[in-house]
């Protein structure tokens, strides 16, 4: 039996998370089919076919996939599910919404937010906002899983998968896309940036003014703590942590962040963590690789200058 991996698109392009999910799915050592659905899928199908480890790219093109809705993705996957013993999606906003729905229709309990796979049926996943990691044995013959993409290294390009078109069930039209308000930014995307600099509530109204020049010099994405977002100093989509974006950059710089467990849970796959905080007892220092005890309002301008 084969493995079905669900890809996601950003516009007409394949989202980078597909390479991570394919890498996770390789644990089962079975042929991998990568499902690509959208309203214009040619470009994404080409990118998908180029991922190493993919046997076939299944292409589902339909106008109603321009903004995929949970019910429509559910019906598409249900139409091909019987050919697979494992179905895997990313633990993304779309994956978290659609994978449990697919599983319920197949009378399967899904395993979500998996960070380690020990094939064929044992996984590790975080619980209690990342305070606990539990090893889980799945007793079901059909396994349906979401994986935390930052926990799996992406597969490289250089594959040459066959591209197959599949038919798309008609939409049940239970829901309808109305609009999206996207915060456009020239900076790298938070979830995939090589460098991330994030600030806590103590940056206050100067959050953007203090972090932007440094982010620009480092080609870094900007992140924020939940408290900082709740206080209105940074927009929601910058929130880093268990309930926000999960990140795994090569370098993470935490500025004025005390290090609440739910924040740490969202950065734990970062390679190098740097903390700058005025409080020597801040928990973030227990977790960081390098620390500087300093007042942010002097340290940040110094950092900006040192990078010039």
């Amino acid at each position: 039996m084969s493995i079905l991996v669900l890809a996601e698109l950003d516009g007409n392009k394949l989202k980078g998370l597909a390479a991570h999910v394919v890498s996770a799915a390789a644990a089962w050592q079975q042929p991998i089919d990568l499902l690509v659905y959208g309203s214009q899928v040619d470009e994404a199908a080409k990118e998908a076919a180029n991922l190493s480890g993919v046997a076939r790219v299944l292409v589902a093109q339909a106008d109603h996939f321009a903004h995929p809705l949970v019910e429509d993705v559910q019906d598409l996957v249900l139409s091909i599910a019987k050919e697979y013993s494992v179905i895997v999606g990313a633990h993304s906003v779309l994956g978290k919404s659609v994978i449990p729905a697919i599983a319920a229709r197949l009378d399967v309990s899904p395993i979500t937010d998996v960070v380690e796979i020990h094939a064929p049926s044992i996984y590790v996943r975080p619980e209690y906002a990342g305070n606990i990691f539990s090893r889980i044995e799945n007793h079901q013959s059909l396994q349906i899983v979401t994986v935390r993409n930052t926990a799996f290294r992406p597969v490289s390009a250089g594959g040459n998968a066959e591209v197959v078109s599949i038919s798309v069930p008609a939409s049940r039209a239970l829901s309808r896309w109305v609009k999206e308000d996207i915060n456009h930014s020239d900076r790298p995307e938070l979830g995939s940036a090589r460098v991330v600099i994030a600030g806590g509530r103590s940056l206050g109204e100067n959050f953007d003014a203090l972090l932007s020049p440094i982010a620009e010099k480092l080609d870094a994405a900007i992140g924020a703590t939940r408290a900082c977002v709740d206080a209105g100093f940074a927009p929601n989509d910058l929130q880093v942590g268990q309930t926000g974006t999960l990140i795994a950059p090569d370098l993470y710089i935490a500025v004025g962040i005390s290090g609440a467990m739910q924040h740490i849970a969202g950065i734990k796959d970062s390679k190098v963590v740097v903390a700058i905080n005025h409080d020597p007892d801040a928990p973030i220092f227990k977790y960081a690789d390098y620390g500087v005890i300093a007042d942010l309002f002097t340290a940040l301008p110094e950092l900006d200058k040192a990078l010039q």
Partner: peptide, 15 residues
């Protein structure tokens, strides 16, 4: 709340 902002959808009731 979605990745880079917000999305609005309309659901038939019940939902």
């Amino acid at each position: 709340e979605i990745d880079k902002g917000t999305q609005t959808i309309s659901l038939q009731l019940p939902a």
